[in-house]
Every structure is written in C-alpha cells, then in structure tokens.
Design a protein around this nucleic acid. Structure first.
Length: 103
DNA sequence: GGCCTGACTTTAG
DNA sequence: GCTAAAGCCAGGC
C-alpha cells in the first residue's frame, strides 16, 4: 500500500540536491544529466519548485546555466538566496556564481 | 489520452 | 553582451 505522494523523478532530484556539498552550487542541467535526462532541466526545475522538504533539500544551491540565481520563489527571494549562498562560502562574481559543482 | 504550464538549455541574429 | 525562438521533460487538469 503505497500512496505515492511524490514521483520517483522528484525524489531523485531532491536526492541529487542533497549530494551537493555546502559552499557549492550546481545547475538544473547538471542535475538533469545526473538523473539520466540531460534535457530535463525544466522538469528538474519544476520538481525543485515543489520542494516539500525545504530545509532538507538545499534548493538554494541550484542555479540556471547562466550563473544567475534564477526564479527562486522562496523566502527572501533571489537576494536572500544569494546572501545565503555567500554565507555558505559560494563566491559570487557581479551577482553571478563564480564556479559550479559537477557530479 | 491530449493540451498547457513551468525555479531550464541551447543556438542563432 | 543581449534578445528572440525552438527544443525537451515531467506534472497537473
């Protein structure tokens, strides 16, 4: 008896986010590629956006390939997200991520 | 089963 | 460096 509240894909995305070390950031494309769907960046974004495990899943460590923060809809918005990342040790260059983490 | 939306990516101008 | 358009995947209705 299994009430699938969340799909396997979503759980996989969250698991991938949890593998990101503190002070590092990755892109949706990287996560999608890690899951075996290098073109599922949008699906990854949607899954992360649902993020029911906010404190458990470091969604703030995920950024688009542009290096920008992206459409973060959480508390504090993009500014709060950037500030939080900087607090974790992430280097920002002119409002952009200096380096990405690769699986 | 089909259509629309979305925290994206990539290529071209 | 910026803007515009097309592509791809999963979820929701």
């Amino acid at each position: 008896m299994i009430a699938v509240m969340f799909t396997d894909f979503q759980q996989s995305v969250w698991e991938a986010l949890k593998t990101i070390p503190r002070g590092k950031v990755t892109t949706y494309g990287e996560i999608a590629r890690y899951l075996g769907r290098p073109r599922a960046a949008r699906a990854v974004g949607s899954a992360v956006g649902k993020n029911p495990n906010a404190p458990e899943v470091p969604c703030h460590r995920v950024v688009p390939s542009s290096g920008l923060v992206g459409n973060y809809s959480g508390p504090g918005g993009r500014d709060g997200k950037i500030k939080l990342l900087k607090e974790e040790g992430v280097v920002f260059e002119r409002g952009k991520v200096g380096e990405f983490y690769r699986f």
